[in-house]
């Protein structure tokens, strides 16, 4: 905040703003995300029951003091299952986006910097992947690789990768024309150094904004895949799978689908709002400290 170094110029203290993370929506986003992260990390401590333990006296029970959110058709505590389900959701969300970001940014940097043949080759493949709807593509990959947590991450990662590749490439094309890149080239710097030290830092802002947004998207796709039975396999708790299992008892126990849907909604909403707030926060024109 305040810079105490005597060698740096004086900074004009910025006015307190209500933009970015300090805006009401930004605070809501932070609360939601922190809440879900906390639950995912500490669910072993705070969950009232083992998520897979069956209570044979309570099948499809409504919310009560013993089971706050009720139980499912096997007598398992819904709250505990949703808590453990957040782990799957976040692992898939961050894992898939991390994978997509790594592959996409690498390909985008190569394509944008090299241009020429390599650029065309990479971008045509990327365009081909982008032509498929992401859920369809992930479905296909899941069908080929078989269900499981790591294949979900890879499948969603591959489906999301083209967005990162395209964004990165477009940014690289503009940054590489800037004078300091030419200057580095003129001093004999090698291509990897130019790419990593001079180009990458300048494209990270938009990439991170996209990544935040895509976390919510990945969580949603995971829920869809699990809903379709191709995701995380039972008995592991996954929100999509819980939502699906609630479908069979929608008249008897509507809370199963309702609460799992709510968990998905809260998470995706939180992450999406966070992206919005972060983007505003990181925009130097907004006057907020980066």
């Amino acid at each position: 905040m305040t810079d105490v170094s005597t060698h740096t110029p004086h900074y004009v203290p910025r006015p307190r703003t209500t933009r970015g993370l300090r805006s009401p929506l930004g605070i809501l986003a932070l609360v939601l995300v922190v809440l879900i992260l906390g639950v995912a990390i500490f669910c072993g401590l705070i969950a009232p029951y083992d998520p897979n333990k069956q209570d044979y006296n309570a099948f499809l029970e409504g919310p009560s003091a013993a089971h706050w959110l009720g139980t499912d058709h096997l007598g398992r505590d819904l709250l505990s299952r949703l808590m453990y389900g957040s782990r799957v959701a976040l692992m898939v969300g961050f894992g898939a986006v991390g994978f997509a970001m790594f592959c996409g940014v690498t390909l985008g940097l190569l394509a944008g910097y090299s241009r020429g043949f390599l650029d065309d080759a990479i971008m045509r493949v990327v365009d081909a992947i982008l032509a498929f709807p992401s859920v369809m593509l992930a479905l296909g990959i899941m069908a080929a690789l078989g269900p499981g947590l790591s294949t979900i991450i890879i499948a969603i990662g591959i489906a999301d990768m083209p967005l990162f590749a395209r964004l990165t490439r477009s940014q690289v094309l503009s940054v590489r024309e800037r004078d300091f890149v030419t200057a580095a080239l003129a001093m004999g710097a090698r291509a990897p150094r130019i790419i990593i030290r001079h180009i990458l830092p300048h494209i990270l802002g938009p990439v991170i904004a996209l990544a935040t947004l895509q976390v919510g998207h990945a969580i949603l796709i995971e829920a869809v895949l699990s809903f379709l039975g191709l995701g995380v396999q039972p008995p592991t708790a996954s929100w999509g799978a819980i939502l699906k299992s609630g479908f069979d008892y929608l008249e008897l126990a509507p809370w199963i689908s309702a609460f799992s849907g709510l968990a998905i909604l809260m998470t995706v909403l939180g992450v999406t709002l966070l992206e919005d707030a972060l983007r505003e926060q990181m925009d130097p024109k907004s006057g907020a400290k980066t």
């Binding site: 004078d179 300091f180 200057a183 580095a184 001079h198 300048h202």
Partner: peptide, 12 residues
């Protein structure tokens, strides 16, 4: 280079 404002990388 001509312009020292743009020929230096601002994040280095």
């Amino acid at each position: 280079f001509q312009d020292p404002m743009t020929a230096l990388d601002p994040v280095m």
